[in-house]
Nucleic acid binder design. Structure first.
Length: 364
DNA sequence: TATGCGTGGCC
DNA sequence: TGGCCAAGCAT
């Protein structure tokens, strides 16, 4: 195990606090974000969970719709699972939604229905890690806790011209430790954490050229001194994605289409999908599969290929539209896990992940 | 510590 | 087009 990391030039950090706060309180807080309108603990919590690895622009409509359906923690704790996943459909990282409900139940059962204000108690809730606990604490109650996310790491690594790998846990720990002694309390704690976010999102950009002339830290940024903003942050290369072929089946009798619920654990856990098989199946393969399951098709048509990229897997999709003969379902050995749904039910009730939406236009 | 876990935007 | 990236967490 490597020893704890000490950041070089950390003496620069106390000097970045005031410029950031001044910048945030000025024109910087122009960003109209709905969770900033009424930053109750619940609103802050929900927004921070949705914002994990997700851009603010993508979150906004989900946030509005979620709060309209589940306006408080009690409602969330009692939410119907199917509705919960439907509210999250398309946002990704679906365990966030499940953990949100689990945490709400703990909050109701053990904390009197209110989010706990201690860092440790927040951390104990499912889905809340160090970043999120600190973000909630600072924004909701003015706790002096640095919320170190990708934005903060990028800004700090550039200001310090530091080449440590930001994917390494000890780098984040070192940044937290270096910032914590200088953190203000009250509304400035909230403002400072959000200032880092805004600076990272609008000025100290991760790709392309950062907008250094607009940066309140330009004068004291060591990377900028050397014209080397692009060199930072240093980040370990990601592992190449696993490549998989899958064949999607639009299996239907008239307008009733087969849906299958994915396993409770793993990729897209518990969400609904069109039946699909590993590999790139030919029409002969499809016919054999149908016969094996007792289905009789009246028509089999190929559908266009598609590709879907997850963070760690890449699916190369092919598809078939399979019209079953009338009364076929009475005699077929339908897998018990299949549901038969109309286009309206598919769009209104079932949570279908984006990986399958390429084939939705072929549903009639 | 390394890996699994989504999606869409940007260059 | 392909690769990188975003307000991370759980195990």
């Amino acid at each position: 195990m490597k020893p704890a990391l000490t950041l070089n030039h950390a003496d620069i950090l106390p000097g970045i606090i005031q410029p950031l706060l001044t910048w945030y309180k000025g024109q910087a807080s122009d960003r109209q974000l709905p969770w900033r309108l009424s930053p109750t603990p619940y609103h802050t919590w929900l927004s921070e969970i949705m914002l994990q690895q997700t851009r603010a622009a993508a979150v906004i409509p989900y946030y509005e719709r979620f709060l309209a359906a589940l306006p408080d923690i009690a409602a969330l704790a009692a939410a119907d699972d199917e509705m919960l996943m439907k509210l999250w459909q398309g946002l990704g990282y679906y365990s966030r939604a499940r953990n949100l409900k689990k945490a709400a139940q703990v909050i109701v059962a053990e904390h009197g229905g209110r989010l706990p204000q201690e860092h440790k108690a927040l951390l104990a809730l499912p889905g809340i890690g160090r970043y999120t606990a600190s973000a909630i604490g600072s924004i909701a109650w003015g706790k002096p806790w640095p919320a170190v996310d990708g934005n903060v790491l990028r800004v700090i690594m550039r200001v310090l011209a530091c080449s440590e790998d930001i994917m390494a846990a000890r780098t984040r720990t070192a940044v937290e430790k270096a910032l914590a002694p200088h953190y203000p309390t009250g509304s400035d704690a909230s403002a400072l954490n959000q200032a880092f976010m805004d600076l990272g999102a609008t000025v100290c950009l991760p790709h392309g050229t950062p907008h250094c002339p607009a940066c309140p830290l330009q004068q004291l940024c060591l990377a900028h001194d050397n014209g080397q903003e692009q060199k930072y942050p240093v980040k370990a290369a990601a592992k190449p994605r696993r490549q998989e072929d899958r064949t999607i089946l639009l299996l239907h009798q008239g307008s009733a289409y087969a849906l299958h619920q994915r396993p409770a654990k793993g990729l897209l856990a518990g969400l609904w999908e069109f039946p699909n098989l590993p590999g790139r199946l030919s029409q002969q393969d499809i016919e054999a599969w149908l016969q094996c399951h007792g289905y009789r098709a009246s028509q089999i048509k190929p559908l266009p290929a598609a590709r879907h990229i997850f963070s760690h897997v890449e699916w190369h999709l092919s598809g078939w539209d399979i019209q079953l003969q009338a009364d076929c379902l009475q005699t077929a050995e339908c897998p018990a896990s299949l549901r038969w749904a109309s286009a309206a039910e598919i769009s209104n009730t079932y949570s279908i992940p984006s990986a399958f939406t390429y084939y939705l236009p072929y549903i009639k």
